[in-house]
Each structure stands twice: as structure tokens, then as C-alpha cells.
Design a protein around this nucleic acid. Structure first.
Lengths: 348, 348
DNA sequence: GCTCAAGATAATAGCGCTATTATGTAGCTG
DNA sequence: CAGCTACATAATAGCGCTATTATCTTGAGC
């Protein structure tokens, strides 16, 4: 007798979690209306809204964003992949992104490659597992597989902190070779002729490498000027800067102008010059990149180039929000050049 | 005639997304087995595993973690809430957490309060919307509502970067008053008697405030020693440090020992001393907190106290992973004191 | 009074996966 | 060779929400 076959053996944890149904029951409305209350508050009457708000309050309801994301086939997560969180530049951008996106109730999921571009593909794959509303990547060089994954997923993509090569979708940043140019021009203008670029980890940090390249290129276009690059494989730090200055003075005793791949290096150069009695800027002009928090307060204060990390984050967020607002429409490409600023201070 | 009533009007986007069913079909297995392949690879035969792997590869399958999380009633997300990402301390911890958790395929979702404790509750609420596997909070002071939310949710909680008050669940960090004590002891040992603590944003940064308090307490316990706190409302920076030193010399002309709430402040103090011709350490001993990347390279190199930011992240991750492994078992409280290290350098 | 539009609310069928249970298939034992 | 166990695979019923469609209510217009 097959009659008894389907006893409801189904226990399943049936958590006593508060759901949208509980809220609906308490507000004496249907779950649909409660859902609408969250998604399109204007479509719900004032009376209903109030009842729902009261029920939420009373039950301490916390919506389940995974259920929502699954049903809607897209989450309110924006996945951001940067080389490193410890880098003050990216930290600034991430903070701005988080603030701006947060206003639209978009969540940030952050990952970092530690400058191993090879990992990016896996991070993107994981990111896509959350059906993100958008993905933010750093720089413009990505593996073919990464590009394919993103293209197929049709997720909006913003590439930040670099312009130059073709972009996948949207981009916000500036041209790093122009930074190098600007640095060289500045030193030339100060009458410097024997120039050096001190860099850290240039083989991994492509953007720093492009700055170095732009620097040398611009310098060598000027008459009677020499320009070289000295680099160190370790991440940028004041310690590395001090070492690089030692090497610089040793190999190029009459160097008179130095541009550093970032302010940490420049800080180390300043300290080392103090120790070895090299007068800045009299004998040696020094400039950095980043305008980190200590740069203005240094002794001498540091001439540097300020990348608009905050603005990059804000603009990227703006592009994402705009794109999400017109999801149906033909996506328009957007490339925003945020430029950068040279801050002339005492060290040059 | 009611017969036609339920035409399948249901179109619904039916994305052509690749699902676990597609993988199963291609591997000629059931979806259950494919799911098992992801969750408990050992339970699947070698032959089946291989077929599944091939199908995944061929279809470029990306699992939908939201569907998984919904079905499993818990996600592989660990939500981390720190005061600020721009702060090098927390950046280090977050990086370590991300690395360690990543090894277990746990994702980090990061938020920041910008030192507005009031926001924490909202962030926790949002975090819980993702049914996270664990929540990491900074510090020990949280609103009653926050505590209730977390308690009710039964999610593992780790509080980091501070010990002292009672903890909610697990905690990893150190005692900030002990840092203050250690700093005072060090300066006393160097024969200093007129001590100052220079701090930034002490009303918001409770941990810095506790360091200040510990410092003054320890100093005043010694005979013939005076100790005061001077503070500035802005976030810590070298600029603020320089200003604070100015104020310090003005108000306490015979100060001979200074502890700063962090290395940025101390760096500003060093620069300002250089400018005003105050000899460090001859006339004035200076110490910081943080051992930031420039501290060892400074001129003079900076005596400082190093908080184990990396270790805190690693230990927190370890606790979380251990807890998740024994989810059934009675959760055991864990409080880990990571201590800190005083690094004696030239500035004192 | 009746139609119609606009506005508000409700009913319904999944979203893609996992947990649980059920079924099949060897490989032993005595 | 029945009877059992261990292992491998499959069937099933949701998880909590949203999108879509359907229904109900109201008030205006004639």
C-alpha cells in the first residue's frame, strides 16, 4: 500500500528567525507589501508604512539580504579589489567608496591582491559568486580570463587609479606617465640637471613604473640633462628611501634632483640627507608622490604630487550609482580623468 | 469556466546563468553530488570528482553564494567593523584577517565607523543581514542594542585591539593602560621627570585615551615626577604633533620627556624639534606608539611601542576558524592577550 | 448608477542552492 | 546466499525574499 509513502519527515531546522512574514502578520498586511516597503517606500500608503515600521521595531526584524539577493538575481554588494589595504592611497579611495555607496545602501566587499596580479582572477571569480551590483578593480591590466568572466557576467566594472590603456567598461583615474612628466618638469624648472628617480618594487607596481618611465622620458628630452632610475625590490618605506639615497650618492655623486616613487621613500631620503649633511634643497631637490599625512610637516616640507584618492573613490561611486539607476539603458562608457596636483614646498 | 485559470503566465527572467544543475547534467550526475563536491569533496568518488571538475571548467561555472548561504542559513562571510581603514594599525589587522580567513574560503566584509560609535549599531545590523559566519568588532565598548543584536543572532563575535572590560564572546588584543605604564616607566628609567603625553582625538579614540591615562597614572606614582596630557581634537598627524610640541614647550618649558599617542604625532614632534633646535634625546626624550614604517628610519630613530596588529588579525582568524569547526560544541570563551613590545631607539 | 483609471495591496511562483532522507551498490560475514 | 554495513549517489523540500501578475478599493466623470 503506497498510501503512507510521503510522511512529512521533513524536519529541517526551521529556525525561529524573524522573517518578512512575521512582520507582515504583525502589521496585518501581506509579505508583498512589506517587501515593497523596503524596495519602493513611496508605493506604500502612510498608514501601512507606519504599521510596518512598528512591526519591524517590535520584532527587531533584520532582513535577510541573501534571500533578497537570490530572488532579485543581484545583490547590493560592490566588490572592490585593490593591491593592498595597507597602502594609504587605496585606503583613502576605499573609504570614499564605502561612504558614497553606503548612502545608497550598497555594501562594499573588499579584497586585496598584494600586488600579485595572478590572484586577481580568483578574487574576481569569488566576487562574482555574490552576484555583485558592480565590481571595482585597480589599474588596467587584467588577465584575459578575468576580462572574460566580467564580460560574461555583465556586471558594471570600474577600473580605478590608472588611465591610458583601453578600459573594460568605466574608468576613473589619471595618467601616471604624466605624473612623471610633471615631476621632471618641476625639477628642470628649478634648474636641476642630474636627475634620479628612486623607486620601490617597480616590477610589481606598474603604476609606479609608469611614473618612473614618464619621468625619465621627459627629463631626457631636455638638453644637457641626465636621468636614471634606481630601484629596490622591497615595498616602499622610509628605510628603503634611506638606502636608495645612499646608493644614489655613491653611484651619482653629483645628482641634484630626485623624484621618489612615493612620499615614504622621500621621507627616508630627507632623513638620510640630514644624517649625511646634504642640504635640501640647496644641494639637492627632493620630491615625492602621494602627499601623505606627514609630507607638509616634514623638515624641510616635502614637494610632492597629490593623487586625488578621495575623488577617485567618489567618482567611481557616482558612476556605479548612475549605472545602477539606468540599468535598462544602453550602458555608456565613461572615463574620468581626475588629474593630480603638484604641491611645491621647501624640499625643491 | 474555471479550467483555464492557471495559465503559466510566469515568465520571470530565467537568466541563462550556469547553475549547479547544468554542471550536474554535463557531468551526468545529480545536483546533490555536485553540491557535495563543493562542501565535502572527500565524500565524492574520484571518478565523479573528475567529471564534475571537467564540467565546471567547460561551463565556466561560478557558484551562487547567496543561494548557498540562504539554503544553509549561514554564509561564509566574516564581517569586520573597524574605526578606520586609513589607520595603519587596523589595516594591518584587516589584511592578516583577510589572508587567514581566505585560506578557509571565508570572505571579509569590511565596514568602518570613523570613530563614531553611534554608527556601530547600524553597521552591525547590516552585517547581520548577511547571516555572517562571524563578526569582528574593534574595542570593547558597544551599545546595549548592539550587544543584544549580536547575542540574539548567536553569531560568534571577536572583539579586537583592546582588553580590559568584560568581553561579549572572544577577544584578542592588549591592555592600553599597560602601554601607558610602559611608556612612563621607560621615560622614568631614562631619568626624565617632567613628562607629557601628547594625544590626538582622545575623546573619540578610547584606546588612546586609556594609554594617556595609564601613562599619567604610572608617572605620578613616582616621586618628584610631574605628568600632564595635552591634546588636540583633530586626527593624529605629524602636523598635529608639531603643533602640540609648540604648545608643550610654551606651557611646560622644562618638559624633558614626551610620549605621543602615536608615531605620526611623534614624527611631527621630531620635525618641530629640529626646527626649533631642541636636541633629541639630550634635552628631550620622545617616544611614540605604533612602530609605523618610518619610525626606525627617522632622525633620530624613534623609540616606540609596537602593537602586534598582524598577530591580532591572525589570532582572531584562528579563533573564528576554531569556533566554526566546532559549531555544535559548547562555545568556549577565549581572551588572548597579545602584549606589545617597547622598541628603544635613539629618540629616548 | 456605471465605467474606468489610478493607487494600494495581495497571491503566486520561483531564485540556486543545501540539508536531510532515501535509495542503490558493492563488499563482508557466518 | 541471506543479512548486514559502509560507501556513493539521488530525490525532495525548503531557505526568505522579490518580481510579476492579479485583485481590490476609491473617487472622478458623465
Amino acid at each position: 500500500m503506497a498510501m503512507v509513502a510521503s510522511k512529512p519527515l521533513r524536519t529541517r531546522r526551521k529556525m525561529q528567525r524573524v522573517t518578512i512574514m512575521d512582520v507582515a502578520a504583525r502589521a496585518e498586511l501581506s509579505p508583498s507589501t512589506v517587501s515593497l516597503y523596503f524596495r519602493k517606500p513611496d508605493a506604500v500608503s502612510a498608514a501601512a508604512s507606519e504599521a510596518i515600521a512598528r512591526a519591524i521595531e517590535a520584532l527587531d526584524y533584520v532582513p535577510n539580504l541573501m534571500a533578497g539577493g537570490l530572488a532579485a538575481a543581484s545583490s547590493r554588494v560592490v566588490s572592490i579589489i585593490v593591491p593592498s589595504v595597507r597602502n594609504a592611497f587605496f585606503a583613502e579611495t576605499v573609504t570614499a567608496l564605502q561612504d558614497e555607496l553606503g548612502k545608497q545602501r550598497l555594501q562594499v566587499m573588499l579584497s586585496h591582491t598584494e600586488y600579485k596580479e595572478h590572484d586577481e582572477e580568483n578574487l574576481v571569480r569569488t566576487a562574482l559568486s555574490w552576484a555583485p551590483a558592480a565590481v571595482v578593480l585597480t589599474g588596467l591590466s587584467h588577465s584575459a580570463a578575468t576580462r572574460r568572466l566580467l564580460r560574461d557576467s555583465k556586471v558594471p566594472v570600474v577600473e580605478i587609479w590608472e588611465l591610458g590603456s583601453p578600459t573594460m567598461d568605466m574608468a576613473v583615474g589619471f595618467h601616471h606617465d604624466q605624473v612623471g612628466h610633471a615631476a621632471a618638469s618641476h625639477l628642470l624648472q628649478r634648474g636641476r640637471k642630474r636627475l634620479l628617480f628612486l623607486g620601490a618594487r617597480l616590477h610589481e607596481d606598474r603604476r609606479a613604473a609608469r611614473r618612473a618611465q614618464g619621468f625619465v622620458e621627459a627629463a631626457r628630452n631636455a638638453p644637457d640633462v641626465t636621468a636614471e632610475i634606481i630601484q629596490h625590490p622591497a615595498p616602499a618605506s622610509a628605510e628603503v628611501g634611506a638606502m636608495l639615497l645612499g646608493e644614489a650618492l655613491h653611484r651619482f655623486p653629483n645628482v641634484d634632483g630626485i623624484a621618489c616613487s612615493n612620499d615614504h621613500i622621500a621621507l627616508g631620503v630627507i632623513f638620510e640627507c640630514q644624517r649625511s649633511g646634504v642640504a635640501i634643497p640647496e644641494r639637492l631637490s627632493v620630491m615625492g608622490f602621494g602627499d601623505l599625512s606627514f609630507s607638509a610637516a616634514a623638515n624641510p616640507s616635502l614637494t610632492t604630487i597629490r593623487p586625488p584618492g578621495d575623488l577617485i573613490g567618489k567618482e567611481a561611486a557616482r558612476l556605479i550609482i548612475a549605472r545602477l539607476a539606468h540599468l535598462g539603458a544602453e550602458p555608456e562608457q565613461a572615463v574620468i580623468d581626475t588629474r593630480f596636483t603638484l604641491l611645491h614646498r621647501q624640499s625643491s
